[in-house]
Amino acid sequence: MVEYLIFSVLNTLVLGMLLFMLSSGLTLIFSMMGVLNFAHASFYMLGAYFGYQITTVAGFWSALIISPLLVGILGAAVERYGLRTVHKYGHVAELLFTLGLFFIIEEGVNLIWGRNAMPNFIPASLDFPLFTLFNSEFSAFRAFMLLISVAIFIGLYLVLTRTRIGLIIQAALTHPEGVNALGHNVPAVFMMVFGGGSALAGLAGVIGGIFLITEPSMALTLGPIVFVVIVVGGMGSLTGAFVASLLLAGLQTFAVGLEYSLVDLLGIIGVTVNADGILRDIWRIQLSHIGPILPYLFMVLMLMFRPKGLLGKREN
């Protein structure tokens, strides 16, 4: 049990911080520009594919730097030449624009790399167990993922709270027109945040593509979870995104290892039910089986009882 607990906590941190890398950019973009970017997870996917391709030519460490840069530049270009033009037609047009972009990127990836998963493996320099506890190993690559994401978290926090550009970003979260009227180039800041958010998604893709899988459906697999994170955390709240990332990662990680059914759970509180009859299958569903839908269930409940999310400030 102690082994299960320790490794579940570690895996929660690894997955949670990966989710935070994705959701932090998305939530910043949403609160500044009001754009719910459906293509955000597509930038994550591009990060993974670019990362894989660069690794085959120049190695993993080059990919770790170049791939997020490329995705960031692409993201900035999408904002500058796409979204900014569409902006005058309202938020629905922007939403449809990013949805279209999602499909274009997915089909583009299909055309270039094909439909099969890429052989995107852990680099040799990180392919060893960092430590063994009880009978389980914790790989160096997982530790490296954790290190990168914690560094990104601290870096993001310092940039937003200690630098002038961070103050401008924070101010533009509530009153972009006010910041603009004070003489700060808000459209350029928007482009930078969009590019930066995309670059973070790209970085998550480089390591997430190895940790999970690099295939054309990876954006569709992770995208909805990232949306759940920002809804649960509260639209526009970075701290909320951080808490929700860890919470949802924990929910999924712990559920996977728990072989309890509804009958067992009711048994703990002293209620016995007849597990046969017409509801037999429902009584016997195990927690590990419903793990993947728990985040969505959580989001639905959150929207019903606390629509602004854990730490969100918006009511709408």
Partner: peptide
């Protein structure tokens, strides 16, 4: 653009005040 106008020396104090609440 508003920031270009501000850089030419025009300042604006809006009725809604636009105080940045998180700062």
């Amino acid at each position: 653009k508003p920031h270009e106008i501000a850089h030419r020396g025009i300042g604006f104090v809006p009725e809604d005040r636009w105080i940045f609440p998180g700062l």
